[in-house]
Design a protein around this nucleic acid. Sequence first.
RNA 1: GUGUCCAUAGUUCAGUUGGUUAGAACGCCAGGUUGUGGCCCUGGAAGUCGAGGGUUCAAGUCCCUCUGGACACCCCA
Length: 420
Amino acid sequence: MKYKSIKGTKDILPDESYIWIEVENRIRNIMHTYNYKEIRTPIFEETKLFARGIGEFTDIVGKEMYTFVDRGGDSLTLKPELTASVIRAYIQHNLGEKQPLTKVYYISPAFRQERPQAGRLRQFHQFGAEAIGSKYPIVDAEIISLSSKIYESFGIKNYKIKINSVGCEVCRNEYKTILKKFLFEISDKLSPESQKRINVNPMRILDSKDEDDIKATKDAPLILNYLCDDCKNHFNQLEELLNFLDIKFEVDGRIVRGLDYYTKTAFEIISTELGSQDALAGGGRYDLLIKELGGKDTPAVGFAAGMERLLMVLQKQNQNKFQAPKPKVFIAYTDQSFEKITFNLAHKLRSNGISCEFDFLKRSLKSQMREANRQNSDYVIVIGEEEINSNWLQVKNMRTGEIQKVGIENLENYFLGLDE
RNA sequence: GUGUCCAUAGUUCAGUUGGUUAGAACGCCAGGUUGUGGCCCUGGAAGUCGAGGGUUCAAGUCCCUCUGGACACCCCA
């Protein structure tokens, strides 16, 4: 085979695309019920935006981005996540000046050059939402409510919401010092990987999957006990709000977000049925990002979720039974000389918004009937000598097998009346 | 980037210690008397056995390299 899709990319073929469309539509509907409006940003941005926004030393920026130099000599990057782009647009278009709180959502491809595995592709799709402009925990609660509502509405079972606070600049740094001290003391019991991370990213060690790490850090200090009053208060209020809405969650002091910009609230929605990449969605508050990217000091919260992962769970739980598009009417003809008349009839029906199909391969009537069946069309009309002479058409209902005679002048109305 | 396993018709898979024209099922195509699908029956098309190299009288089968896939690490949605 000469040409193949790039490693870690996937074609969404016709027998699957309708599922994507349906899922996207439902996500949009839920976003709209929460009054979030869609924002679409370009597929690539200046490389610096991500380096600045996500963090120079994160793995995403350091080794996973698709970065290239364009013909003008500028360094550009295919977006590895959406928040940085959304915030760039927010700042660039002064959205904060039009209203104090901006609520936007997106459904978009994103790109990371990682080794593909279950639930991970190099071109993948994320949906998510950002609420920009409020520092109050009720927005954090809305974001969590919104993200979990999406999974709930698809009938997904076995997902968990885990929340944590990663503190603010002040209390997190104090905590990191304490944590590092603890980790150094037990460093001989940690995995080699984690030993290297003590200075670089100590909080990540608490999230390690390594057995030794898990054992060794069993009694590690957790940030929740070291939050400053403001952060502690914020977290308590969030818990209270979630309880008030009856949203089930777990507090997990070990959740860490991979992107540098998070402050205070961090949360994840995980599924027990996803294999190793078990996060359906992740998000949290990022009060420092907008200023970091050159905007005004503006608080914000958001979440990002993986489309492919949602689709995986839907399939595993057999919840992806959506209706594939199909023609309402299939027009079959008994002789090739009626092909043009058939085309013309199809044209009329289509002009009236009635989806229909006919044969393009000059096949036998039997083959056309089989085709109509395969297409799952609701009705079949047969065009032949008699019909053309009499102007009465036989309309066969493919569910019941019943055949009705319909005058050609009433045909559109017949099908439109059946709509509903 | 690391590791393990894998790669044969459109799809899912067989293919015996290396040995004639590489098989099955499903799918696809055409038929099963004059103008009606789904089941059934008959027939048919379809594979550079992932790519390249090597060993051998002989390679789908053994060896090497590459590419791709699955899963895990890493990282993260």
